[in-house]
């Protein structure tokens, strides 16, 4: 799928996630960047925040990535009791695996042979960021937010996923306090693979519902 990012190889001039590096420190200072610097300095000077807290928060957010969700999915594929706990309370199941997800209220929705789940937030861009890290840019676009609830199948085709009619699509609009993660179906031909091998098949998009796991 064109938007899935492969961790296993890098293109020249591209970041590990397969995107071009974007200028940051060397571009002309913008009004909004000045506002960020000013807000940060004022909040530190007034004792609300410390530079260490800000650095630690950035580090904690950087440490969150789709790999966390992939580990949860792989565990659910190999451990039926864990799968049951995940579907009952995905926050507790994620914490049980040692992930610091803060106050995240997470619901896992399971793909099966006849059900495919898709996650969106039409009102803003709610995303299970405390487990999967920050959302991809397309998740926050007008096109995705507008269309995913009315023509999910057409949207999925744009992501390279053409679902047959007998598969029911269940779209989940994150309108309030819950966040969602798709538990994708375990691919065929993965018997005998261990959790780490299985986790490597799980893509970010397969946990949003816009993709499927890799096949071995």
């Amino acid at each position: 799928m064109p938007h899935d990012h492969h961790d296993h190889f890098h293109h020249a001039g591209m970041s590990p996630s397969g995107h071009p590096y974007r200028a940051d420190n060397d571009t002309p200072l913008s009004y909004w960047q000045r506002m960020e610097i000013a807000v940060r300095e004022l909040m530190v000077e007034k004792g609300h925040l410390t530079p260490a807290e800000i650095a630690a928060q950035i580090e904690a957010m950087d440490a969150r990535s789709p790999a966390n969700g992939a580990a949860v999915v792989a565990r659910a594929w190999t451990d039926p009791a864990f799968r049951a706990r995940l579907l009952k309370n995905a926050s507790e199941a994620s914490r049980e695996m040692g992930f610091d997800i803060g106050p995240l209220n997470l619901i896992a929705v399971e793909n099966t042979a006849d059900t495919h789940n898709l996650i969106v937030c039409t009102l803003c861009s709610c995303y299970p960021r405390n487990l999967l890290g920050l959302p991809p840019d397309w998740y926050k676009t007008r096109a995705y937010r507008s269309r995913a609830v009315r023509e999910p199948r057409a949207v999925l085709r744009e992501f390279g996923l053409d679902l047959p009619d007998h598969v029911t699509v269940r779209v989940h609009d994150s309108t309030a306090d819950m966040r969602y993660i798709v538990l994708p179906a375990r691919p065929d031909g993965t018997d005998g693979m261990d959790e780490a091998q299985l986790a490597a098949l799980v893509t970010r998009d397969s946990m949003i519902g816009t993709g499927l796991p890799h096949r071995p």
């Binding site: 609830v149 999910p152 029911t168 699509v169 779209v171 989940h172 609009d173 309030a176």
Partner: peptide, 12 residues
């Protein structure tokens, strides 16, 4: 697109 597809949302 498909009448039997579903949409879930959280509503107060």
């Amino acid at each position: 697109e498909n009448p039997d597809d579903t949409l879930d949302a959280e509503i107060y």
